[in-house]
Simulated assay, not measured.
Amino acid sequence: MYTINTPEGTRDRLFAECRERRQVQRELTALFQRRGYAEVSTPEVEFYDLFLQSGNPMPQESMLKIIDRSGKIMVMRPDCTTPIARVAATKLKTLPLPQRLFYDQTVFRSGQEHKGGSSEIAQCGVELIGAAGWRADLEMVALAVDALGACGVQDYHVELGHVGFFRDLASRVDMPAAVIEQMRLLIEGKNFAALNDLLEPYAGQGACKALRRLSRLFGGAEVLDEAEELAGGSAVLVYLRQLYNALCKAGYGDHIRFDLGMVHQIDYYTGVVFRGYVEGAGDAVLSGGRYDNLVEAFGRAAPATGFAVDVDAVAGCLPEATAARLETLIHYGTDDLGRALAAVDAAAPGTVELSPQGEVEETMALAKEKGAKAVLVLENGTERRVEL
């Protein structure tokens, strides 16, 4: 017998998974709106050239491509930030900055074959466009923490880094650009052994010790102390400490940590970067940072920062909730539909249903099959309840 499966990287979601996904989306979008962010929506299909023009670091093999009728290459939206940057630079160019935008969309990515990753990822996120400096970064990190808290997960934190710290250290070592990129990948992947081997020829240079330790510089605020000792002082570290102190005074300290080895997509991000983690998820469920050059690629110079939340990853970490159980099936006469619908609407969701059966006995049998506790019979203006 032939079985029709879903394409690789996609899956069906049933019942509880759908409820949990909607809960996360509902809580996130409500929070974003309370903070003054307005919703935008972009097409699921974009021109491939859009991402080439933006300098987006996403490898082309991770994009799902389509050829349109004119022969142009299109892609299923692999990222929400780049299309929103296009919108901010074109459709919204006459509006004053800063602009606070949020989205609730799906992105599509072609994962490695047989690696088990998802090709369609539900994301809720925000973009703060046209705001630079410390207050904008502070607002964004605080919103990231609040976003995870609003979802209802039990244990969560946000890790902060800054791409400027790696750039500063790398500039102090006489190393070819290709080797610097290789080093960045090793630090990002926390590949300690390979990093040590790569840095061995540069051991006599001043910043080598700090670069060797960079992938291990994660944890609490003590990480900043160690980094300052290794780097011999850094304006970036002063900035991160200022950010941390302000977050602590606002009550966010318990949810803030650091990872100075967070050097992902170094040409895309320009400042503070951060990731969010929740108990029960094997990887980050939130990712973001400052990207001051992206909007300018579409003709409007504007600094920007933002983040995206992986909705399904967060939903999978929610405490297990008891599903609604069918309590009552309603059997109704042809003139009693209005009363029957009113009874369904007045009950807790999922606890009362209409019966499609024409005879009371058939409704009784269906109620027993579905595990209902009672049948409510509404006929000819009368009402009676039969317990099962």
Rank of each mutant, 00 (worst) to 15 (best):
P57R: 12
G71L: 02
P57F: 11
A85H: 03
P98V: 07
D68C: 07
T81E: 00
F102V: 03
P59G: 10
G71W: 08
P96C: 02
P59I: 08
S62V: 06
Q53M: 13
S54I: 03
I73W: 12
D79G: 01
Y103R: 01
D79R: 00
K72W: 09
L52S: 11
L52T: 06
V87R: 08
L92A: 09
D79E: 03
D68Y: 09
G71F: 07
R100G: 14
L52C: 08
F102S: 02
L92G: 11
M63S: 09
N56A: 14
T81W: 00
D79Q: 03
P98K: 07
G71S: 04
P98C: 07
R77S: 02
A85Y: 06
V75I: 09
L97M: 05
S62Q: 15
A89G: 04
M74E: 07
R77W: 00
S54W: 08
K65A: 05
M76N: 04
G55M: 13
K65W: 07
T82D: 00
T81R: 03
K65C: 05
T94S: 13
L52I: 06
F102Q: 03
L97G: 02
T82S: 03
P57W: 10
A89L: 01
Q99S: 00
N56T: 08
Y103W: 05
Q53L: 14
P96S: 12
A88T: 03
C80Y: 01
L92T: 06
K93R: 15
A89Y: 02
P59Q: 11
P59A: 12
R77V: 00
R69D: 03
Q53A: 15
A85S: 14
D68A: 06
A88Y: 03
P83K: 10
V75T: 10
K72D: 14
I67V: 15
S70D: 14
V75N: 13
R100S: 10
K91D: 14
R77I: 03
D68E: 08
K65E: 09
G55S: 13
E61H: 15
G71Q: 01
E61Y: 14
M58R: 08
L97Y: 00
A85E: 05
K65M: 07
M74Y: 05
R86K: 10
V75C: 14
M58N: 05
S70A: 15
F102K: 01
D68T: 02
K93C: 11
T94P: 02
A85F: 06
R100W: 07
I66N: 13
S70W: 10
K72F: 12
D68N: 12
S70T: 15
M76R: 05
A89P: 00
K91I: 04
E61L: 12
K65D: 05
I66A: 14
A88L: 02
F102H: 12
G71V: 00
P57S: 13
P98Q: 06
A89R: 02
T90M: 04
L52V: 07
K65Q: 14
P59V: 11
L64H: 11
K65S: 05
R69A: 05
D79P: 03
V87G: 11
G71D: 02
A88F: 04
V87A: 14
S62T: 09
P57I: 08
S70N: 11
V87P: 09
P96I: 01
T82I: 13
L101W: 05
R100Y: 10
R77D: 01
Q99I: 04
T82K: 00
E61I: 10
